[in-house]
Design a protein around this nucleic acid. Structure first.
Lengths: 193, 193
DNA sequence: AAGGTTGTGTACCGGAGAGTACAATACCGT
DNA sequence: ACGGTATTGTACTCTCCGGTACACAACCTT
């Protein structure tokens, strides 16, 4: 009961995600957010708590939306195809004109003031979780004799993540989709075998 | 004539550089800066103009100091050694405990609010200048028959820069020096020949 | 139709940020 | 020693940020 909400919560969250993506956590102001979300201040606080909670919810939405390709990529049958899918997906997302350039996990708060420190740490944790997921997938590949025994799975996962996040930085510098694609293609030449 | 300055300008700039490096342009506050520089507000403005000018001067100092290795790397005799030196230098800098983690050109302002937009653009320009310098070095290598004719120098340069900046992100996530080193070593396996 | 409940709009608060006025201070040249 | 000059320290301004109080509006239940 009570007055019903005048906006769709998920749509508003998508808009918020985009603002954070484009301006980073600190660079995104509440007026920025409310304008993009089409709601006013008290509605934002009532629906999402505060700026930091809103950001975390936007992160979850980011994981479920623009970076859903990563989960699919990890399900590919071979390690090589996992890596290819990850890089291809990263390039496609970075080059997609509908999104802000780059990756929210990188642009959100690489460096920040004291206040945003919890957010920075959260992003670091999420990035590291990605590296771990890739490493575990490669370890499975070793067990399946898809990758040679003795492969440095941690190193390989770190390398793949390095290229992915590096591509996000390049996208932020204004590199074209084609340039990113060529760099990603080169990156795959590392592949053993 | 007049009262002499009570601090060394270059030393103060080094401290400012470190603060910007650690907290980014927006995250670094004037009180942060003055405290680290050991001077007070009006001295900062008198000596360096304003926050943005101070940042640009810190960038110049960054180019001359912590990233001086890049210039030396470009002077290596072969393209392969150029790439190796660049990656090795990037890892060494990122892992050096005396510095903040990562790279000022990346951490300074990947994404930001409206006010800092000129700074973000400046950083993007400087990063792209680095890519161009690497590309030109590789093009020279092709002319010298050091790299095979028809080599995609732009792609190769983009790739090397991608790895370097990706390493900066990894460092910000807390990756150890050893992890970075292994990733960089893998990255060199791309090398033709 | 009336009351309770929840969202909305305006207008506000405390605090922190960048930048500056002004008086006091320390040095130089004479 | 003394006056001119540039730096320093304190205290201030102005703006904008995140967050909230409070009155009003819209809906559901009975």
């Amino acid at each position: 009961m009570g007055r019903p909400r005048g906006f769709d919560s998920d749509e508003a969250l998508d808009r918020a995600m985009e603002v954070f993506w484009r301006h980073g956590y600190e660079g995104a102001t509440i007026p920025n957010l409310t304008r993009a979300m089409g709601i006013n201040r008290p509605s934002l606080y009532a629906a999402f708590g505060n700026k930091e909670e809103l950001f975390r919810k936007a992160l979850d939405r980011y994981a479920a939306g623009p970076t859903a390709f990563a989960r699919e990529a990890l399900a590919e049958p071979t390690a090589r195809r996992v890596a290819e899918s990850l890089l291809r997906g990263a390039v496609r997302m970075a080059a997609d004109g509908r999104n802000p350039r780059g990756c929210l996990l990188v642009h959100g708060a690489l460096a920040c003031g004291e206040q945003a420190e919890p957010v920075r740490r959260e992003l670091a944790v999420r990035r590291e979780a990605g590296v771990s997921a890739i490493r575990e997938r490669f370890e499975r590949a070793v067990r399946e004799n898809d990758l040679p025994a003795g492969t440095d799975c941690a190193g390989l996962a770190r390398y793949v993540a390095t290229v992915i996040y590096g591509l996000a930085v390049q996208a932020a510098s204004g590199a074209t989709g084609d340039e990113l694609r060529r760099a990603a293609e080169l990156a795959m030449r590392v592949w053993p075998g």
